[in-house]
Simulated scan of single mutants.
Amino acid sequence: MSQEHSGHGHGPANRGRKVLATAAPLFVREPDGEPRGGAVVLHDVFGVTEYAEEVCRALARDGRLAVSPYLYYERGGPAFDAGELAVARAHMDGLTADDLACDVAAALEYVQARTTGPILVVGFSMGGYLATWAAAHHEVAAAVAVSPSGVGAPPWPGVPPAELLVAERRSPWLGVLGGADHTVDADLLTMATQAPGPPAAVEVVADAGHGFYRSGRPGHDPVATAEAWHRIHRFLRK
């Protein structure tokens, strides 16, 4: 069921953007013509920001039906500014494993019902953890985790650390890490990719920090971001 969502509970207005209601409402971008595949974009701690929306737009330009679930929807689906990290983290900490599992599954079901092509899951930071969770619980064309959280210690009670999910993957998985990101243990993830299963790899972008991908925000590194997407597309072509 479609609806027009007039605005986030907090953050930039959403006027004129198409949102679909599932377990969590979805930001949706449709390609021109019949979709040749689908994508689920899982946001980081700051919510469905302009950056998350732009990733959906880019994937739609590539011919995919792209959606991003508002994982904070029970509080209005907000997006937070860079200076509101503490508030954003409080929203993240308030999420539950069961609700997140339903939200990710529902987003995948929405896309799967509307395309017969391959489906990609891509996530950033906390969304990178969820993309890794999806790789362990669903069969998709590929899951990509950029600067994933939850390595070494799970981000929420009741879920395993990210490296265990990588080891138990059911779908191809790629982790893209910043070389200067000291919050993610690349060695743990790399060891997990050696477990039997679909293809898996870790790519390290030299000198990039944790939030290098966040366009228009402190820490954004456009050169590192372009390199990360180059490596993502190379992995997807395999």
Rank of each mutant, 00 (worst) to 15 (best):
H5I: 11
G7R: 14
H8S: 12
G9E: 07
H10P: 08
P12Q: 10
A13C: 10
N14R: 13
A23M: 07
A23T: 13
A23P: 02
L26I: 10
V28M: 06
P31E: 07
E34H: 07
R36Q: 14
G37L: 06
A39R: 04
V40H: 03
H43S: 09
D44S: 07
V45E: 03
G47T: 12
V48I: 10
E50R: 13
Y51T: 14
E54C: 01
C56W: 04
L59T: 05
A60R: 05
A60T: 04
D62A: 15
D62T: 07
G63S: 04
A66L: 01
S68P: 08
P69C: 08
Y70E: 05
L71W: 03
L71F: 11
Y72P: 00
Y73A: 14
E74C: 10
G77A: 12
F80R: 00
V87W: 07
V87A: 15
A90E: 15
M92V: 11
M92N: 13
D93Q: 15
D93F: 15
G94D: 13
D98P: 02
L100Y: 02
C102D: 13
C102P: 05
C102L: 15
C102Q: 15
A107Q: 00
R114G: 04
G117L: 10
S125M: 04
Y129W: 03
A131F: 02
A131T: 08
A135Y: 00
A141I: 04
A143P: 00
A145N: 09
V146A: 12
S147E: 07
G152E: 05
P154H: 00
G158L: 09
P160M: 03
L164I: 11
L165M: 09
P172E: 07
W173N: 07
G175K: 01
G175D: 07
V176S: 11
A180V: 06
A180K: 06
A186Y: 03
L188G: 00
L189V: 07
L189R: 05
A192E: 06
P198C: 13
P198M: 11
P199Q: 11
A201I: 09
V202A: 02
E203G: 07
V204Q: 06
D207L: 12
D207N: 14
H210L: 11
H210N: 10
F212V: 03
S215V: 15
V223Q: 15
E227I: 11
E227T: 14
A228F: 04
H230W: 10
R234T: 14
K238R: 13
